[in-house]
Amino acid sequence: METIGVLDLQGDVLEHLDHLERLGISGVRVKEPADFSRLVGLIIPGGESTCLFRLLNIFGIKEVIDREFQRGLKLWGTCAGAILLAKNIVGESPCLGLIDIEIQRNAFGSQLDSFTCEALIPHVAQQPVPLTFIRAPKIVRVGEGVDVLLRQDDYIAAAESSDILVTVFHPELTPCLSFHRYFALKCGLKPHDDVVPSLIDPTWDSRSWTKHSQIAQV
C-alpha cells in the first residue's frame, strides 16, 4: 500500500497522522532509514527546527531524505519542517536546502504573538481555510520554480515547487483536511473524497491527537 510518512524525531507527529487517517490515507511514523521504503511522501512536522536539525544530522536521516527525494519522494514541511527544507535561512546555514525559498525563523515574536486567521487559497480549497501560526517563521522570498500559494502582509505563508510543499502554519492543528488532501494528490494518491465531503471534518477537535498517545485504551 502506498504510504505517506511523518518524520518522527520531535514535534507534532501525531496531529499529522490523525489528519491522514481522516482522509483514509495510510500514514506511518518515520524514524529509521528502513522506514522510507514504500513512501510516496514525507511530512516534516512542526517542532523546534534546531532540535530536528541536530537529530537529522546525528542519525544520518538527512542523507536518506536527500536520496529518496532524488528518487521522487514528495516532501511537505509545516513550520519547523519548512525551515529545514529551505535553501536559505536568514542568518543561519541551511539544513536540507531542497526548495529555493528564503525563510526567517521565529519571525513574529514570542508565544504571545502566535495567532489564528482564515484565508482563501484557491489552489488548495474553494472555501477559506483556518490557519494556525505558532511562533511561526516567515518566507521572505521564493526563487525560480517556486510558486506562492498564500501571501499575507509582508510575507509568504505557503509555497510549492513541483515536488515540495511548504507552509509556515499548521493545517494539522485545525479541522481542515484540505492541505493534507492537496499533498496526497501531489504524491499521486487519491484520498477518499467521500470520507469528508467539505474537508472541514466536524468530528475533529483540538484533542483528537490524544487518541494516538493513550495511557489507557478507551
Binding site: L9, V13, G47, C51, Q111
Partner: peptide, 18 residues
C-alpha cells in the same frame, strides 16, 4: 478559548523534546 488552545498547541510542538 482560542488563546488557550494556541498555548496548549505550543506544548504539542515540544513533544518528544528536552
Amino acid at each position: 478559548k482560542k488563546r488557550y488552545e494556541l498555548n496548549v498547541q505550543l506544548a504539542q510542538m515540544l513533544k518528544g523534546g528536552v
